[in-house]
């Protein structure tokens, strides 16, 4: 099983929209795919019309509830979801109760390796014990970066943070998201190399109103509007990520 997390210290950068679309594209390419919605707001779950759980996470994180029993099938063949849970707001506390708090998620996910080819984590914005768990649980962090100085600054902070714990062995793959080529600032940053320690992926996901409409359709844009620029950008991003991880694309 190969795995990656949609991760950013900053909120509102398009993590969930990317996670939902890449999960859909992964399953469509024939990878048995599991998307774990770790964000207590439950946006990924909402897009897939799966109700968020209430306080079952406690048992799950303590290993007292079977991971498999918490998984829900999505409407798309080969794509399953581990829905969000309101209790994820206190996930730091829950993880801290475990014996080896930083590798709790990785151990929890070990049984999933038999049933899935691709695991995607949709993470809440933070730099906490949850983050350290995510770094140890996945092969790569997929980091959306809006072409603005503030967003680039948070990428640097993340690279510093990951660099400080090399034992986690996680790769950092940033990509430009919500890019608007009409804005000169965006054009300038898109042309530059904002963080040489973590080169940007080639694919650029543009700002597109169709992505906002995902909340109306409650489905991945790649599923209901595959011809749009946004859907094509996600497809290009999936090609690149799947190629690097050795998954079907």
């Amino acid at each position: 099983m190969r795995s990656f997390a949609l991760y950013s210290i900053k909120g509102g950068v398009g993590k969930t929209a990317t996670a939902v679309n890449l999960a859909y594209l992964s399953a469509r390419a024939g990878n048995r795919t599991l998307l774990w919605d770790l964000d207590p707001q439950g946006a990924s779950s909402f897009y897939f019309r799966v109700r968020a759980e209430v306080a079952k996470a406690k048992k799950l994180l303590r290993g007292k509830r079977d991971l498999d029993r918490a998984i829900k099938g999505s409407d798309y063949g080969g794509l399953d979801l581990l829905p969000a849970d309101a209790a994820y707001r206190r996930m730091d506390l829950l993880l801290n109760e475990a014996k080896k708090p930083t590798s709790r998620l990785r151990r929890l996910l070990e049984p999933a390796a038999e049933s899935y080819d691709c695991l995607i984590l949709d993470c809440p914005p933070s730099l906490t014990l949850v983050s350290e768990n995510v770094f140890r649980a996945v092969d790569a962090l997929l980091v959306p970066v809006i072409p603005t100085p503030l967003s680039v600054r948070t990428l640097r902070q993340l690279v510093d943070f990951v660099g400080a714990s090399p034992e986690a062995g996680v790769l950092v793959w940033p990509f430009f998201a919500l890019a608007d080529r009409r804005k000169r600032l965006h054009q300038e940053i898109l042309a530059a190399t904002p963080e040489p320690r973590a080169p940007m992926l080639q694919a650029v996901v543009p700002y597109h109103s169709e992505v906002e409409r995902m909340g109306v359709h409650r489905a991945p844009v790649a599923a209901y509007a595959p011809g749009t620029a946004a859907a094509k950008a996600y497809a290009a991003l999936w090609q690149e990520v799947a190629g690097r991880l050795g998954l079907r694309h």
Partner: peptide, 11 residues
């Protein structure tokens, strides 16, 4: 006449 049912995982 037959009806086959296939629940989605978790349902």
């Amino acid at each position: 006449r037959r009806l086959l049912m296939e629940p989605l995982k978790g349902y």
